[in-house]
Amino acid sequence: MVANSEKLKAETKGLSFYYGNVQALKDIRLPLTEKEVTALIGPSGCGKTTLLRCFNRMHDLYPHNKYEGEITIFPDNINIVDRGIDPLDIRMRIGMVFQKPNPFPKSIYENIAFGLRVRGVRKKTILDEQIEKSLTRAALWEETKDRLQESAFNLSGGQQQRLCIARALATGPEMLLFDEPTSALDPIATSKIEDLIVGLKEEVTMLIVTHNMQQAARISDWTGFMMLGELIEFDKTDKIFTNPAKKLTESYITGRFG
């Protein structure tokens, strides 16, 4: 059963990806429902990160990487991985949060202003306003409003990750990509990020890679199970975790391997 009734934000079709000669993704078909959370699970090295990084053309930063097939983004029906599409245009619309919190070595303020500055926003009133708004949405405003000029490195790991989420939100993305955003965090910081992601469903479509199956079960609406570069099964999260169609999926979620 694949989402059809709901509105799609993006969909990959026949997507393959190569690191040089090594094929890391094979013929992936993955729909992303608008304003919902789709989770990618699967054993280490199965290609979750690789798939996620196709969505904002991160692979373009390194030589010899090759995409095949398409990722269509709606409503404008553009193929994200088309050579003719400027990756910059895509990254203006789709934000990303990395596995390890990676704030810039700048102040809290400048970290969030960054995305606006690269878009040419200069006015301090607009920057101030957006910074407060983004920090509030990332549930970080109360903790940081009196120390905006301090270095971002003074924040705890969990706060840094929320800062990175605020940084991604500041530019008003249509979609957010998360690559195991809580794998470096303690349980309390993790649950804050999870709450945050659930709250963001009102505004953005999200794709999240997670190592943690409980996390996928807790926060996602849809789940894709990957193995060896293939999308083995994709369905409603409830279905995947209670009654998966494929034997492989079942073995994985019951912890028989992975």
């Binding site: 991160m58 930063l61 990254r91 810039f104 690269v118 990175c164 500041a170």
Partner: peptide, 24 residues
């Protein structure tokens, strides 16, 4: 990771170098 963070929010190569890599 600094460069990737910069590209991910839509910075160009030169913006990344000027605003992130060179200051660091």
């Amino acid at each position: 990771s600094f460069r990737e963070a910069s590209f991910a929010v839509g910075a160009t190569k030169w913006q990344t170098i000027r605003m992130v890599v060179l200051p660091a």
